[in-house]
């Protein structure tokens, strides 16, 4: 097997890393490790379509495709394998993929759905669902029962959700094409809601080298306005006791802690709380920030998690689990 990837610029000192330097003080002496991790291509993760077969039944297929000897099960999920980025394999063209036995996603993308822990007969909302990897994971965790309202504003991107539904054989998804910042009340209440908002995508630079070049003068405030509106609307539709996972693939506190803090400020901290995330066995996470620039966030923000690429050889990510404690007066 050959490596087809050109290494990224060694960039602690190159302009490539400039937009991320604002996080240098958060990482302190880990900064070089962070830069190093970003200079390497991202491992691939392949997860079992458990509505169709078990991970041990998938194993012989991975073996037949020459993947098993290179694969390691995720430390925190028995159903998924990590494959080194150096493997030059078109995973999406292999028979077990085409037959809907597995799906591909990067490791961090599997975390919010897993933490949300949807149960088979529940009613789930996925506010920003396309291209649908997380929706599919939720559908499998629910064993094809219950309801997932998979919404996205982009019709083009919803087509990708459709093709995943077909290939994996998912029965519990209703797709809608709507502005999630503005859902009508008739959408009903939900047991759990995934709020995987559009963001600056800083944490995806190992997959998409260009992303960091788009960040110069990035308008975090404008982006976070939409994120706040989407999160607010989602939290209003949670049933009492229901849980939402707010997630982004960015390091920017303006799109993470600040969004969660401001929305809960608006909805009332008595009605919602940021709850601890379940432990990801063998996977290192850092707590959400309590301060950024001249701002402070609620102490419970420590329950949110930040994922830095150099800790687990992944992309960057943020997840906050928010539980509705009682009915909010409208």
């Amino acid at each position: 097997m050959s490596s087809s990837h050109t290494p990224y610029p060694k960039h602690a000192t190159t302009p490539y890393m400039e937009p991320l330097k604002r996080y240098q003080h958060l990482l302190q002496d880990e900064w070089d490790d962070f830069c190093d991790a970003l200079s390497k291509p991202l491992p691939q993760v392949l997860w079992t379509n458990t509505t169709r077969l078990t991970a041990s039944e998938l194993e012989p297929w991975l073996d037949q495709c020459g993947l098993l000897e290179h694969a390691t099960r995720l430390s925190w999920s028995e159903d998924a394998w990590k494959l080194p980025a150096s493997l030059d394999v078109a995973y999406g063209t292999l028979l077990p993929f085409l037959a809907g036995l597995y799906h591909l996603q990067e490791e961090v993308s599997l975390i919010p759905g897993w933490m949300l822990d949807p149960q088979p007969y529940e009613r789930i909302l996925d506010t920003c669902a396309a291209p649908g990897g997380k929706t599919a994971q939720l559908a499998c965790l629910m064993r094809n029962h219950g309801t997932i309202v998979a919404n996205d504003r982009s019709p083009g991107r919803l087509r990708a959700v459709r093709s995943i539904i077909d290939r994996l054989g998912l029965l519990n998804i209703a797709m809608s094409e709507y502005n999630a910042a503005n859902f009508p009340r008739d959408i009903g209440t939900f047991d759990r809601i995934l709020v995987d908002v559009p963001c600056s995508c800083e944490g995806t630079s190992r997959k998409n080298k260009r992303v960091l070049t788009t960040l110069e003068n990035y308008d975090y405030e404008n982006q976070s306005r939409l994120q706040r509106a989407i999160l607010l609307r989602a939290l209003e539709q949670l049933r009492p006791g229901g849980i939402a996972a707010y997630s982004t693939c960015t390091y920017a506190p303006e799109e993470n802690e600040r969004v969660v803090h401001q929305v809960l400020d608006q909805l009332g901290w008595d009605n919602y709380e940021i709850i601890p995330t379940p432990e990801l066995k063998g996977f290192k996470t850092m707590p959400g920030l309590l301060h950024w620039e001249d701002e402070s966030y609620d102490a419970s923000m420590e329950n949110a998690i930040r994922i830095w690429p150099h800790h687990n050889d992944t992309g960057g990510f943020f997840v906050a689990l928010i539980q509705k404690t009682q009915e909010v007066s409208q």
């Binding site: 309801t147 309202v149 519990n172 209703a174 809608s176 709507y178 008739d186 959408i187 009903g188």
Partner: peptide, 8 residues
């Protein structure tokens, strides 16, 4: 067990 919304 599917319970889709009326709107959207």
């Amino acid at each position: 067990s599917m319970q889709p919304p009326r709107r959207p």
